[in-house]
Each structure stands twice: as C-alpha cells, then as structure tokens.
C-alpha cells in the first residue's frame, strides 16, 4: 500500500486498530465507527491521535458535531461503481466543517482520484500495483470544472463572468 497525501507520497503514522484489539496508550490510531459509538465516552485522546473509519452506509451528517474529535476520517470504496463516499466526503467538508485528513481506502482507482480530490478527499491509499508517478498525474488531468465542489477551485460558470 502506498499512501498519498496532498499530492505526495507520505508515510502512514496512523495505527489502524481492530475492534478486538486494545487501544495503545499513545500514538495516532483509527478505530471503527461502531467502536467510536460504543466507547466514545471513555476515549480521551485528542484529534491529532484519533481517527475514525467510516463505513459508506453511515449518513455523514451523523458524524456531525463529533467531527472535531478526529484528525482523520477514512471513507470507503468497496468497488469502482459504489460512489457513496463521494457524498460523505462532501458533507464532511461542507457541513461538518471537517478540516482534518479524509482518506480514501478500499478500491481506490486511478481514474477516480480527481473526483475524490474534488469532493474533499486529500489522502489516498493506492493499491500495490499502482504506478505512483502515473497515478499522481491523474490529480491534474483536468484543470477546468463545470461545477463547484469542495476543492475551492474555480468553476467554469463563474470564470466566464470573470470571478473565481
């Protein structure tokens, strides 16, 4: 697995803890959304050490006020065709005002990276077979967009009127 964050290869300092394993005393960890729901009252770590793995069946609005507790939220792509996580990421950015890392995991596909990025996803777990350099190029295949999204890039209808 290769982690790409903000358009560059990065090392993953997060430990991804299974529900059956205890949480380490210190260090950055991610836990499942279910575990968060059941143990939230006893978890005291700050956002820089706490992340959550969001299944794509959870309404992102349910994360709502909790978003500030996390430094990382992972969203899941079970396969190329299941696009629920795009909506989750946008809602996390636009409504929960989540400023931490949103990381795409699961079936991450080269030709979807720019869609993911536009929805507010800023980190990707690339599969082993990924040709990293070529995949990173996918993030800049388009520099013109027909709609606003979560990436604050200009979009065409506004550019036409000389505004960003």
């Amino acid at each position: 697995m290769v982690l790409v964050k903000n358009g560059q290869v990065a090392s993953d300092y997060w430990q991804h803890i299974e529900d059956t394993d205890p949480l380490p005393q210190a260090g950055a960890v991610t836990i499942s959304w279910a575990r968060w729901l059941s143990e939230r009252d006893s978890i005291t770590r700050g956002p820089s050490e706490l992340g959550v793995r969001l299944p794509n069946t959870i309404a992102a609005d349910d994360v709502g006020a909790d978003a500030g507790r996390f430094g990382l939220i992972t969203v899941t792509y079970p396969n190329i065709g299941d696009g629920r996580a795009y909506s989750q990421a946008r809602i996390l950015r636009s409504r929960a005002a989540f400023k931490g890392e949103i990381r795409a995991i699961g079936s991450v596909v080269r030709d979807q990276l720019q869609f993911m990025q536009r929805c507010g996803i800023d980190a990707f777990e690339l599969p082993e077979k990924a040709l990293t350099e070529d995949w990173l190029a996918a993030l800049s295949e388009f520099d013109l967009f027909y709609q606003p999204a979560e990436d604050s890039r200009p979009w065409i209808a506004r550019q036409r009127h000389g505004r960003n």
């Binding site: 190329i80 065709g81 299941d82 696009g83 795009y86 909506s87 946008r90 979807q112 720019q114 869609f115 993911m116 536009r118 929805c119 388009f142 967009f145 027909y146 709609q147 999204a149 065409i156 209808a157």
Partner: peptide, 13 residues
C-alpha cells in the same frame, strides 16, 4: 449538461 459533466459526486451512482 454543463453542471452534470464529470460531476465529482454523481459520476458513480
């Protein structure tokens, strides 16, 4: 047409 073209959220419905 323009809004829906390569819409980042709704291309994998």
């Amino acid at each position: 047409r323009q809004w829906s073209t390569l819409h980042p959220e709704f291309s994998w419905l």
